[in-house]
């Protein structure tokens, strides 16, 4: 397989992969809001309520590496 062919396949499958990821992400965004696990729109308040002593919108004691759902 020469490099041009490889380039073609890589481009094609990678694009498909990223498109799938994008749509999956959209579904994920709306579904997790519907289920009440998350509220993305609330994150917009991070900019509005940004005093150093104001309560973080999404504070947690969970370490970043821990892959676990947060309870609000």
């Amino acid at each position: 397989m020469d490099i041009r062919e490889l380039q073609g396949y890589a481009s094609f499958f990678m694009t498909i992969f990223l498109v799938v990821m994008l749509y999956w992400y959209i579904i994920y965004l709306y579904r997790s809001e519907k289920k009440g696990e998350k509220d993305y729109e609330k994150l917009g308040n991070i900019a509005l309520d940004d005093e150093i002593d104001s309560k973080p919108i999404n504070s947690s004691s969970v370490t970043p590496s821990e892959n676990k759902e947060q309870k609000k």
Binding site: I46, I57, N58, S59
Partner: peptide, 8 residues
């Protein structure tokens, strides 16, 4: 402190 990264 704010665990969620704001879009900016």
């Amino acid at each position: 402190r704010e665990k969620a990264l704001y879009i900016s």
